[in-house]
Design a protein around this nucleic acid. Structure first.
Length: 868
RNA sequence: GGGCCCGUGGUCUAGCCGGUUAUGACAUCGCCUUUACACGGCGGGGAUCAUGAGUUCGAAUCUCAUCGGGCCCA
């Protein structure tokens, strides 16, 4: 078996991609006694572009899925697609040059579905290229009847339990999308505007929205505001429009803002809604669904909001009502998709009840990673004032399975067994209670979050032939959708099953460009995962995802991380190649027999195996905590430094040598090490690991078990001695390097003063004879410094510690050293003698060669003499 | 206005339930073709741990304030 010198990912990655039988990643629904590990994978919106942010998140998921599988879990890593929504509608309108109302509903839907199917296919391709171990047998597509039947049933169930209801209520409205939206879909931004000061009959009021004068239903002032004593309870006439409105008192009015008198319109903002509800004011709708003025606006009817604002200001000026204008910085709510300023309109809509306590209590039962992300959910939950508006006035979404009786207007909600259905296409299977069979279909559709907020239920077998496996174990997602996806999923899971949706939620960060800015088209700093794969490899990309930053925090994309990842792959390959060339005559299946007992191995082998065991232990624990960066950095450090730079150099002489037992010991150790590294690398670099494993094991590495931690391999003595050997060799190497010698240049002799058993590896690695001499060298030790041990002196002497340290470090080191040799150190602080134990200080010594033609190295306190 | 996170060599970062010389990577400089790897090896330089105060024998670490950056919400 020859291993090529270079690792070529562009050949190896596609090779495994097509060779892999993806059924090895399938979840086993029945008769499996492994513990389940179900991941509530985010269903991406099928834009056709699986971007770098998705990729980061999916890398995390894949690390977890592969790791858990190797740890013996029955893992489900499903893949969903959150299809419905406005962007697809807009795209279809663009490509076909139509608007949604120009073609029949079903035809428009079909166009959307076609586009979505194509986009999903493109994104699947990228996912495959990145090597994700997705369980495609559990794929779900929210626009498919198989899925949306569940969305519809969830609607009906929640209606039956009165957690979904219909009502006329103010809602956030996007005039461009012509649909209601939820608070979660409103973004805020500051805009420059003007505060207009108006003579308002007998009062003065200030308003930023004069275009809503026609919708004015009251004027409010603070009852404690003495300027307006006696006004409360009266009425005032609205300028230009002439209708009378009451003057009411409300403590919420800020007397220092504007004139202290504020007009209440239906509706200028959220505060208007609060006042409107509290004071039971009438409703005047001045803005229609497209953002145009209604007949209430009189001569301004049909104008857009902006046109109306301009015209009204002109008229107010010319008629002398407007007496001042001041610039005002305003926070404007906007539609999160199209950035159009939202309006608040009162409409008949469907709502889902929000039980804040239930959400907060459930959130407490879920493990949040990182912990502080829970606060975001809590803050958001606490600010909820209205219920969740779940109806939308669009087409490409899950239909609301409802009709209205033409005779008595009664609402007919579909029976669960009728579902799935589209009420615009078929009627109910029963007559209305009034006897009528004539119905109007509900044309509104459901918020797409109604689809995606049951993913946890769906993947865990809700409403299927399988038993319900809720809660799932992990929800991975971005922090940008905590207020939506997390919030709604908890709400729905509790409402529909009474169970929490997940044991843990893992929040990933956002990906920033190399300039530290958020990746965006306008900044031109977008990097696609495909580009990274082409220029390097999927395994390199995945390493960037692992080490780019700690889980949860935003991470920057950096090409140099990808470059160093590629180098690491090459380094591992090189270690592998070296190992394989020395393992040709070694039987892999023979590792536990063949008369090799770990205790008989040379110390450097035991040193490595001990460190390897600790590595597995440490990686296991950081993987359990989803600390991928820590896990991978630990593996990389060990592989590169401990194995490549130290161990391989130390055992080369044995591997090339004639001593069969010594060689066999190295082979044994090498094999275990390569096997272990291959396995623990598998979750991170699945292609590289598979390629390596294909020659050292049978079957795919991805169905192997995670290495066991064999505590008996941990050998502190071997580690200490091994460390010393490693340090001695490193010192000799440094010595040669500094002396301009070739690293394999033989030295006359190396004398080591101290206790050291086996030195053959030192001889091999230094290419020089080694003599171990027990006892003190006859060189002069010169103490050159005293280092106080703070850990001992500090807690024991507290206030005196400072003074003691001062004395110790300023005293002649030789004097202190003599005291240490005698067993105790006495220092005098403020006339008081304090006796310190010898452990309280470390004496730094320098060894001076007494005239011999040698060089003396000090390796961790041990004297090593180089005889030239 | 409220909440949350964060300021560590040129850049990014570890450490942060206090305790010897502050970790690593990239970059930089010098040396080396050594039978796995020059996509490599060995070595060097480079940090007032944002600023100020406090607690303490001792602070990158704890407390407070200030400044700066980011995110979420109003």
């Amino acid at each position: 078996m020859t291993v090529p010198k270079e690792y070529i990912p562009h050949e190896i990655e596609p090779k495994w991609q097509s060779a892999w039988d993806m059924s090895m990643y399938h979840f086993n629904w029945d008769g499996d006694n492994r513990p389940q590990y179900i991941i509530d994978t985010p269903p991406p919106y099928p834009t056709g572009n699986f971007h770098i942010g998705n990729s980061l998140n999916w890398c995390y998921i894949d690390f977890v899925a592969r790791y858990k599988r190797m740890r013996g879990f029955n893992v489900m890593f499903p893949q969903g697609w959150d299809c419905h929504g406005l962007p697809t509608e807009v795209k279809v309108e663009e490509t076909h040059g139509i608007t949604k109302n120009q073609v029949p509903r079903m035809e428009f839907r079909n166009m959307c579905e076609e586009l979505t199917v194509n986009n999903i296919e493109k994104m699947r391709k990228t996912m495959m290229n990145l090597g994700f171990s997705i369980d495609w047998s559990n794929e779900f597509i929210t626009m498919d009847p198989a899925y949306y039947v569940k969305t519809q049933k969830s609607f009906v169930k929640m209606f039956d339990m009165e957690r979904v209801y219909q009502d006329e209520h103010p809602v956030n409205w996007c005039p461009r999308c012509e649909t209601a939206i939820a608070f979660a879909e409103v973004e805020y931004d500051t805009r420059e505007s003007h505060l207009n000061f108006l003579h308002f009959d007998t009062l003065e009021i200030a308003t930023s929205r004069p275009e809503l004068l026609s919708a004015c239903v009251a004027v409010a002032i603070n009852p404690d505001d003495e300027r307006y004593n006696g006004s409360i309870g009266g009425t005032v006439k609205v300028p230009l429009f002439g209708h009378d409105v009451p003057v009411i008192g409300d403590k919420e009015v800020d007397p220092s803002f504007g004139t202290g008198a504020v007009m209440i319109c239906t509706f200028g903002d959220k505060q208007d809604v609060r006042w409107w509800l509290e004071h039971k004011l009438p409703l005047r709708k001045a803005i229609d669904k497209s953002g145009n003025m209604t007949d209430i606006a009189g001569k301004y009817e049909g104008m857009t909001i902006a046109q109306c604002k301009k015209a009204i200001i002109e008229d107010l000026k010319s008629e002398g009502y407007l007496y001042d204008q001041k610039p005002l910085e305003q926070n404007v709510g906007m539609c999160w998709r199209c950035k159009t300023a939202i309006e608040i309109l009162s409409e008949r809509q469907w709502f889902a009840k929000i039980d804040q306590d239930e959400i907060l209590n459930t959130a407490d039962e879920i493990q949040w990673l990182p912990e502080y992300m829970k606060i975001r959910l809590q803050n958001w939950t606490n600010t909820m004032e209205w219920d969740w508006c779940i109806s939308r006035q669009r087409i490409f979404a899950t239909p609301i399975p409802v009709w209205y009786c033409k005779d008595c207007s009664k609402v007919m909600v579909a029976k669960e067994e009728w579902l799935p259905l589209d009420p615009t296409q078929i009627g109910p299977k029963e007559a209305c209670e009034c006897g009528s069979t004539e119905f109007e279909p509900e044309e509104d559709v459901l918020d797409t979050w109604m689809d995606s907020s049951i993913t946890a239920l769906h993947v865990s077998g809700w409403l299927s032939d399988h038993e319900l496996r809720l809660p799932t174990q992990l929800r991975p997602q971005g922090h940008d959708i905590i207020r939506t996806w997390s919030f709604y999923t908890i709400l729905r899971s509790m409402a529909l099953t009474g169970k929490k949706p997940w044991d843990s939620i893992l929040i990933n960060g956002m990906v920033l460009g190399e300039d530290g800015q958020k990746m965006s088209k306008s900044l031109g700093n977008i990097i696609s995962p495909e580009t990274v794969i082409e220029e390097h490899s999927a395994d390199a990309f995945r390493q960037w995802a692992a080490v780019g930053g700690s889980t949860g925090s935003d991470i920057m994309f950096r090409w140099k991380d990808v470059v160093s990842a590629s180098r690491f792959i090459q380094k591992v390959w090189s270690i592998y190649r070296f190992s394989m060339s020395h393992l040709e005559d070694y039987d892999f299946n023979d590792k536990d027999v063949s008369g090799i007992s770990v205790n008989d191995l040379p110390v450097i082998d035991r040193w490595l195996l001990s460190k390897l065991t600790k590595l597995v232990k440490s990686v296991t624990s950081s993987m359990n905590e989803y600390q991928f960066d820590e896990s991978f950095k630990t593996i990389r450090g060990f592989t590169w430094e401990t194995v490549a730079d130290n161990y391989l150099e130390l055992v080369k002489s044995r591997l090339y040598g004639d001593d069969a037992d010594a060689r066999r010991a190295a082979q044994y150790t090498l094999h275990i090490t390569v096997d272990t590294i291959t396995r623990i690398l598998a979750p991170f670099t699945p292609f590289l690991a598979e390629e390596m494993y294909s020659q050292i094991g049978s079957g795919s590495v991805h169905v192997q078990s995670w290495p066991d931690v064999n505590e008996s391999l941990i050998d502190e003595d071997a580690e200490r001695e091994g460390e010393l050997i490693k340090d001695i060799v490193a010192s000799v190497r440094r010595y040669k390097s500094e002396g301009g010698m070739a690293l394999n240049a033989p030295l006359k002799e190396i004398e080591i003063y101290g206790e050291l058993g086996d030195v053959t590896d030192i001889e091999g690695a230094t290419n020089s004879p080694v003599k171990v001499i027990v006892g003190e060298p006859d060189f002069e030790h010169v103490p050159v410094g005293v280092k106080p041990n703070m850990g001992i002196i500090g807690p024991k002497y507290r206030k005196q510690a400072g003074a003691i340290i001062k004395i110790l470090t300023e005293e002649n080191p030789q004097k202190i050293a003599n005291q240490v040799a005698s067993g105790s150190i006495v220092v005098t602080v403020d006339g008081e003698d304090i006796t310190l134990e010898p452990e309280a200080v470390m004496i730094e010594k320098e060894v001076v060669s007494a005239g011999r033609a040698v060089d003396v190295l000090d390796v961790s306190g041990m004297v090593v003499v180089i005889v030239r």
